[in-house]
Amino acid sequence: MKKLLLLLSVIICLAFSKSDEDSVKTIHVFVALCDNDNQGIVPVPSKLGNGQGPKNNLYWGALYGVKTYFKNSKDWTFVKSIKSDNSKILERLLFKHKSSNTFLLADAYDGKHIKQTTIDYIEATAGRNSFSITYNSSKLNFGGGSELLAYVGHDGLMDFNVEGNFSPINKAKRDAIVLACASKSYYKTYFEKTKVNPLVWTTGLMAPEAYTLKASIDGWILGESDAQIAEGAAQAYHKYQKCGIKGARRLLVTGF
């Protein structure tokens, strides 16, 4: 009887362990640091536009940059900084959502390597370049192993074309967010190849700041519909940019 109880206990523990592992969701955010010298942008103050300086960069260390905004969020816990083997990534941060088993990995790419950032991001939407990070007893899959992939920064596809391994490696469902100017026009042909779901992207010029990213992710974690998630993104953008909710809804859209 004792042996039977012990066996049942082991089976239950393994079942719960597997259930916990299956419930883990991962998000990978690719940030091309704002770079006055190496990107086709309207110049911003030098401190904000130093693509080799993450600390004060407009899209990373500034008030509405990904690093600062998520570190200050009441919904996310900063877990740790991780050294990347990729020399183009200047800073890599891991966050955990406070009320769900969701992890977010944010990579700050050197602004002069925006083309490689774009290639890495698009390849990831095809399920490629997956890698794992161990946190406590959980194996966290990022890169192409993430369920949600986001890009934040200048739309480099306005300035160059890219080539890479863009055919999907499996039929796993992946969602994509692209917070960059006119991203629907420029990313559409690539996403048609990678078969990723364009959850939120843009139809015109925009400020790719982290409040829009967080609002989109909030809805995704809650399991909202794509339309609801795009609406949340528009509401957040209007709140900070004061652009009018109708304009924000035209700007931030979902689907092909």
Rank of each mutant, 00 (worst) to 15 (best):
D110K: 15
L148D: 03
E21A: 15
Y59P: 04
S146T: 15
Q116H: 12
L205H: 01
D218R: 12
G244D: 01
V253L: 05
T194S: 08
K171F: 07
L105C: 08
S225A: 09
T254Y: 08
H238F: 05
K246W: 03
S99T: 15
M158W: 05
L5I: 11
V31D: 01
S167W: 00
K112Y: 06
A172K: 15
V178W: 02
G127P: 06
M206S: 04
Y69V: 03
G164Y: 06
T117W: 04
A172V: 13
K188M: 09
K47W: 11
P54C: 00
Y211W: 15
S87H: 10
K246H: 06
A182F: 08
D226H: 13
G164N: 10
H154S: 02
Y240A: 07
N38A: 06
S185T: 13
K246G: 06
V178P: 02
D20K: 15
A210L: 10
K239L: 09
N129L: 10
T77D: 15
T203H: 07
K83R: 14
L252V: 12
H97E: 15
S167Y: 05
D175K: 12
S73T: 09
P45M: 03
L222E: 13
A106W: 05
G219P: 11
I133K: 11
T77K: 14
H154V: 00
K83F: 07
E91G: 02
S99V: 14
G255H: 05
P43M: 02
F160L: 10
V200Y: 01
T117N: 14
R250L: 09
D159N: 14
S225L: 08
G53C: 11
G51R: 01
K214S: 04
S132Y: 10
K242N: 12
T254L: 05
K242C: 06
E224M: 14
V66N: 06
G244A: 04
